[in-house]
Amino acid sequence: MAQPAFLSALRSRLRSPQPQAPALPHLQPPRRGFHVELGAREKALLEEDTALKRFKSYKNSVKQVSKVGNILTGVVLFACAYEIVALANS
């Protein structure tokens, strides 16, 4: 019973540090770096909407977190290898 409330509170807390979008829609920067210039119908599909504003895509954030996790894993593996080499030398 408490788990959905905790998850929604966690989601709202994670969402609140995001910077506020500017009021003018044409001055708004793109939410993620698209690799190609979007057409008119794609811009209409991804236009900012009041109802869909709180359901943004988290794919970019997930990719960044995964990348950071990979870096940390590499650091840990490097530290283990360094410890093994140091023990072998001494």
Binding site: R31, R32, V36, E37, L52, F55, K56, S57, K59
Partner: peptide, 16 residues
């Protein structure tokens, strides 16, 4: 390519 990028973004919105 444009459609793929837009569908990836909008698909994320639908998943959320």
């Amino acid at each position: 390519f444009r459609a793929a990028e837009a569908c990836e973004e909008f698909g994320g919105v639908l998943v959320t």
